[in-house]
Design a protein around this nucleic acid. Structure first.
Lengths: 231, 231
DNA sequence: CTTAGAGTGTGGTTAGACCACAGGGGATCC
DNA sequence: GGATCCCCTGTGGTCTAACCACACTCTAAG
């Protein structure tokens, strides 16, 4: 077993046993190194991994915001991992889109009617209806709208996976907009479809919402020309 | 931007541009450090992150198996990330099980009839039918059976997510078996259900397969007493 | 031709040093 | 006495230099 894994194991145990919780602070690198009888380098390697996994956040200086504190951002971990594996071209973009459709269909059909995320989604739709929004702003709002819908189902794992899927193909998706023949027409259609989806969710018509969201996503990628093997 | 992120960005670019591919080798740590004008420490931190993400594998010594080579094991990344976040108790086990049900239901209903993974699943069922298998062996075969089913859908992202979900709660699941009143009876029931699921898949009856697999998983966790907030 | 040894290059680990940063508390000034 | 400024301390961030264990490869001895 490598040295840094020993540090990882120690921290994971502290988390499992409840001695470390979100918001808490990990011992300083130098103290931890001394305590575990390893070098500071090894401690740092472990902390780097945790940082990449969205489990801790490192901050220099002193005071309450400094030091290495425990957070919980599963989306960060899954997102960067997926992005890297997409880069290796061992995770086809088509599979990511397909997975997104399946997760999001499930999410809207299981949305909790009273979820505050639905109000958020409604507000985001209002912002998207404004005429002044640019393409990039529209896309950013679109991402947040879909994530809000996914969150409304109340499943943290599904939410995290949805977020990471979006993150991993954000760059790809924004390149796709260049393929659209008429952005304004597309945007208008997307707005209408968004309202339809949200209405179905609020009518507690999960099946209709699932169907609409699947058509919505697949229709967009088809129009933008999801190329297999594009540059 | 931190130094190790520069190294990460360089490697990710090399992957995206196709200059690095799975099976290829990353420059030696010392050369890369010199090339990018950073210290070997920073290079190592970046490589550690990639290793934790399942993107590279580091091997000492010399020869074809040595050095840092590019691999692609998305399951490793997602699995350890999920496990850590479960440890922080910000990802409820219930949500993981629910997500597993939704992914696996989709997978069996979209299984490709000709997939060789179905033959693998059949063989695994045969091994599980043997009388001599211990509890641990049975569970290990069970995991492989379900993963084979998920692979049969041919979606790499869904396969990776399924694998990581299983990995993240393996420890939890094996503790659950202690709650079962009568293991032999449960095992017998699981065997029957497995054959039923596989038969439905091979009959191209995706809906029935999805329903059976959902009942199968939920039934097991219910019998074993999926405790919310257990130690 | 076989085999034992030295050589070479790889990642693994450590120690020690220096830097930039940000807060805290004491010294100073009004 | 109160407000202000500045040094001190502790944090993570980075780098250098050295040594180790390992596994192959080449060489020279048998």
């Amino acid at each position: 077993m490598k040295t840094h894994q020993l540090v990882l194991a120690w921290i994971e145990t502290e988390l499992s046993e409840g001695r470390l919780a979100v918001g808490g602070r990990i011992p300083a690198e130098r103290s931890l190194a001394e305590q575990l009888k390893v070098s500071r380098t090894s401690v740092r390697e472990a902390i780097r991994i945790l940082e990449a996994m969205g489990v801790v956040r490192a901050g220099v200086g002193s005071g309450p915001e400094a030091g290495t504190v425990v957070i919980s951002d599963p989306t960060a971990a899954l997102g960067s991992a997926l992005r890297l594996h997409v880069a290796t071209q061992h995770l086809p973009v088509e599979d990511i889109v397909e997975t997104r459709v399946l997760l999001e269909s499930w999410a809207v059909s299981h949305a909790k009617p009273g979820s505050p995320q639905l109000a958020v989604a409604t507000r985001l739709l209002g912002e998207m209806d404004a005429e002044a929004v640019s393409v990039d702003e529209f896309l950013a709002l679109d991402v947040r709208f879909h994530l809000a819908l996914a969150d409304a189902a109340g499943n943290a794992v599904v939410s995290a996976m949805m977020g990471s899927l979006r993150e991993s193909i954000t760059g790809y998706a924004s390149r796709l907009t260049g393929n659209l023949p008429d952005w304004d027409a597309t945007a208008a259609r997307l707005r209408v479809e968004h309202h339809g989806i949200l209405a179905a969710v609020q009518d507690h018509d999960g099946d209709r919402a699932a169907r609409l969201v699947a058509d919505h996503i697949e229709g967009y990628y088809k129009e933008a020309g999801l190329a297999s093997g594009g540059t």
